[in-house]
């Protein structure tokens, strides 16, 4: 993992070039020739209907999925050239927030947050007490930041959806990443908690100065905090604009009538 390059602030933190991903030996094309860069400190929103390729794109970026063609370069490292241990070291620096939270349901909220540190720890852990007292203290503070310190010793699967996603966000922050990927982080939540959790997520990422690439299918939720919008349709980029340069028509199409969905 020593061979991994550190992030260069002058360079894009993430660079995707001509990315192609096919499933079932080419029968299904999820991504067709996708290219874009993400600069450090920016917040990019990926919009598109389900099936547009957002999840596949995000999974390719942290190496959970292997591309069929093209390159993904993160912090200047070409993913294709990394060994499996280098890939693990890279994932340590990429936080991932899942639509389904992906918590360990039988473990407590605190243990789930603690597991965010696994990438910098050696050896397997089982149970809260298998982590040192310092780590436990720190993890509680992260739970506090998402407003769930009082739920520390509650089993994760007994929490509400919004609470579970907040635990997952605390785990991601505890991982201390440089780049955050979020795949429809609030799609499984009711509208009220969706707005709350998304606001909290963005606030915390801003506080930590993290670069964010977040997919959403409800574009309205991105208003006010996104720097840039990338629209994906049938595995291709159909829109790529800074929010400030977004034309009125495009804005209406993106923010307004979602059912016609240019971005869809």
């Amino acid at each position: 993992m020593e061979t991994l390059l550190p992030a260069d602030p002058a360079q894009p933190i993430l660079s995707v070039r001509n990315l192609i991903k096919e499933f079932d030996r080419g029968a299904v094309a999820a991504l067709r020739d996708v290219s874009f860069d993400v600069v450090p400190g920016s917040v990019t929103v990926l919009v598109g209907r389900s099936g547009a390729g957002k999840t596949t794109l995000l999974r390719c970026i942290n190496g959970l999925e292997k591309p069929t063609g093209g390159t993904v370069t993160v912090f200047g490292n070409d993913l294709d050239t990394l060994s499996s241990s280098e890939l693990r070291a890279l994932r340590r620096r990429i936080g991932f927030v899942f639509q389904g939270f992906n918590l360990v349901g039988r473990a407590t909220a605190l243990e789930n947050v603690l597991s965010g540190a696994l990438g910098r720890l050696r050896g397997p852990r089982y149970g809260v007490m298998s982590y040192g007292a310092d780590l436990r203290k720190e993890a509680i503070q992260y739970l506090d930041r998402v407003g769930l310190a009082d739920k520390a010793f509650q089993r994760a699967d007994t929490l509400s959806g919004g609470q579970q996603q907040r635990v997952a966000i605390a785990r991601m922050l505890f991982q201390k990443p440089e780049l955050v990927l979020a795949d429809e982080p609030v799609a499984s939540l009711d509208p009220e908690s969706a707005r709350q959790v998304l606001t909290l997520f963005i606030e915390l990422c801003h506080e930590e100065g993290l670069t964010v690439l977040c997919s959403l299918h409800q574009v309205g939720l991105a208003t006010g905090w996104a720097d840039r919008i990338i629209g994906l349709k049938d595995g291709r980029i159909v829109l790529d604009r800074a929010v400030s340069e977004l034309g009125a028509d495009e804005a209406r199409l993106v923010y307004g009538n979602e059912s016609t969905g240019v971005a869809g």
């Binding site: 994932r91 992906n102 360990v104 473990a107 696994l118 990438g119 397997p124 852990r125 785990r171």
Partner: peptide, 23 residues
């Protein structure tokens, strides 16, 4: 999902097995 969750933080096979599968 829990195993994928731990994989995303950079956990090794033994860490994923203990922390998610056995848990």
């Amino acid at each position: 999902a829990p195993v994928v969750g731990l994989a995303s933080v950079g956990a090794t096979w033994s860490q994923r097995t203990a922390g998610a599968v056995l848990r």
